[in-house]
Every structure is written in structure tokens, then in C-alpha cells.
């Protein structure tokens, strides 16, 4: 079972209390952007076996969106952090590096 600690209300929220929101840290490309950027924003998603960054919503709880880093293979959770950020905080990256040396995800590593 997947359990995240909600960074807003601090509860250990299990997966059934949450709603998955897809990949994290996407940059929106709207009107005026190139077709290539727009297509990548709409359709191109990571589907890694291993380290992944996602958005989740604590829907049956405080209702807030947050980010989480986890391993898609073992369901190990590396940490959750607030949604008001465009990149993962260093403490999360450090945890991942210590547990999965040599990991990469998009341009992060």
C-alpha cells in the first residue's frame, strides 16, 4: 500500500485517501508556443521503472495538491513536498541519491 505524509496537514495518508494527479513539474506551453512544445506538454510523459515524481491530491482530507517522489517498482516513498515549487527540494534529491545511486529522471539526477 502506498502511504504519503501530506506536507500540509501532516497525516499519513494512504492511497485510498488520495487522488493521483499525474507527472509532476510539467511546464505549461499554451497559445503562442511551438507545436512541438505544445505536443510535449500535452502528451509526452515519463513512464519510468524506478524513481518518479508525481502530483497527488489529498482529496479525502485537507484537499491540497502536493508533490511526491517514489519508486514505481517497489512503491518506496522518498518523500512528499508542497506544490508551490517548480523543482524538487534538495532534501528529497539527497534521499533518492542515497537510496538509488545513479538515478535519473528527465534532466534531474
Amino acid at each position: 500500500m502506498l502511504t504519503f505524509q501530506c506536507p500540509y496537514c501532516g497525516v499519513q495518508a494512504d492511497e485510498t485517501e488520495l487522488h493521483a494527479g499525474g507527472e509532476a513539474h510539467l511546464t505549461r506551453h499554451g497559445p503562442g508556443s511551438s507545436d512541438k512544445d505544445f505536443e510535449a506538454y500535452l502528451f509526452m510523459r515519463q513512464n519510468p521503472k524506478g524513481v518518479h515524481f508525481e502530483r497527488w491530491r489529498h482529496v479525502n482530507g485537507c484537499g491540497k495538491w502536493f508533490h511526491a517522489a517514489r519508486c514505481t517498482m517497489t512503491l518506496e516513498v522518498f518523500g512528499a513536498y508542497p506544490a508551490q515549487t517548480t523543482e524538487p527540494p534538495k532534501r528529497i534529491l539527497d534521499v533518492i541519491t542515497s537510496k538509488r545511486p545513479g538515478w535519473t529522471w528527465r534532466e534531474l539526477s
Binding site: C9, V11, T16, E17, V59, N60, G61, C62
Partner: peptide
Amino acid sequence: LRRTRFAQVAA
């Protein structure tokens, strides 16, 4: 206070 779900509904 704990907001959660009871079976299928928010509570």
C-alpha cells in the same frame, strides 16, 4: 480532527 473517508464517502 481527522478528515478522511469512511468506506466510500468523505468524512
